[in-house]
């Protein structure tokens, strides 16, 4: 590693720790939220430095973008009272001191065990590279997520679905009085939204051979939806079409897995010849569902009329 690369890494690491400290101790929650978004962006830079561009994309889009928008929106709904956390800045007391000591011990244990690991570690990359020709794609990350460890990804999509179900179980909020944001934002949306759809499609397609894939594409698509929602507020409810689209990605993935069993193979065993196509189908379906899931999380559970859920 060259000296300037090392300097960049050290600067990043110091900045990340500093940001976390600031955002945990600031009493102004709005400022803390902005720092959280900045933290997400710097963290995605750190992923780039670790040569994990797929993770960096996901971090920037979901960790910083969509999550940041969610936190900002939550802050807005809390109103003026919620913007300042009375319990901050943190004063030292016995509980915090013992908590801090516990975390320090944990950190020490982690440091110690990481330092005791063997040098020159390769993990399973050799095995993964050897299996790549049969995976149907050329991007090893996509091969891992959608073929080698597709079972994990299937369940992860279910977890995302559960998040929306969880939001639906909560009491619906009355519709906030939102006015359209004006002609400039409308114009921005009109230009950006088609671009974002194209970018999402590109990311989905690129996932097969380059950094990208369903999660990243879906995050961009959801960001487009959020932008639209900010310009012209709309509400989703849990209408049958919404439920269908939310369940679609998981249903397609599971159905393909089961059909492969019916066809005489094992669960989720993509035949090498069709693996590329099947992965693209699964990813396309998942992109649509995940995008709507993320958007539904942002839009939240809003009551249309009095005492009833959205139709």
């Amino acid at each position: 590693m060259t000296a300037d690369a090392a300097a960049l890494d050290i600067l990043l690491a110091v900045l990340l720790v500093f940001l976390v400290w600031r955002l945990l101790t600031l009493s102004d929650l709005f400022k803390a939220t902005i720092l959280f978004i900045v933290f997400g962006l710097l963290l995605s830079l750190a992923w780039v430095r670790l040569r994990a561009p797929d993770v960096a994309l996901a971090e920037a889009a979901i960790g910083s973008g969509v999550t940041g928008a969610l936190v900002l929106d939550a802050l807005r709904r809390l109103g003026a009272h919620g913007a300042v956390d009375e319990a901050r800045p943190l004063r030292l007391n016995l509980a915090r001191l013992s908590g801090g000591l516990l975390v320090a011990c944990l950190g020490a244990i982690l440091l110690w065990s990481v330092l005791s690991l063997p040098a020159g570690w390769r993990g399973l990359s050799a095995e993964a590279m050897a299996a790549m020709p049969h995976s149907g794609v050329t991007n090893p990350v996509t091969a891992s997520l959608l073929n080698f460890r597709s079972h994990d990804t299937l369940l992860e999509i279910a977890v995302l679905m559960l998040a929306v179900l969880g939001v639906w179980t909560l009491d619906a909020e009355p519709k906030p009085s939102a006015e359209p944001a004006g002609p400039i934002l409308d114009l921005l949306v009109r230009i950006l939204l088609p671009l974002m759809v194209v970018v999402a499609g590109y990311l989905l397609w690129a996932g097969g051979h380059a950094p990208g894939g369903a999660f990243q594409g879906a995050a961009v698509l959801a960001a487009g939806g959020i932008l639209l929602h900010l310009a012209r507020p709309f509400y989703l409810g849990n209408h049958v079409i919404i439920r269908l689209v939310i369940g679609f990605g998981f249903a397609v993935f599971l159905a393909i897995g089961v059909m492969l069993v019916v066809g005489g193979g094992r669960f989720l065993e993509f035949p090498s010849r069709h693996a590329g196509t099947l992965i693209l189908v699964v990813e396309a379906a998942a992109t649509i569902s995940i995008a709507l899931i993320l958007l539904a999380l942002f839009v939240g559970n809003v009551r249309e009329g009095a005492g009833r859920d959205a139709p």
């Binding site: 944001a181 400039i184 934002l185 114009l187 921005l188 950006l192």
Partner: peptide, 12 residues
């Protein structure tokens, strides 16, 4: 495009 729109929104 985005920075000029953002500028307008903040100013507004």
């Amino acid at each position: 495009l985005t920075s000029s729109c953002a500028c307008y929104l903040v100013a507004h």
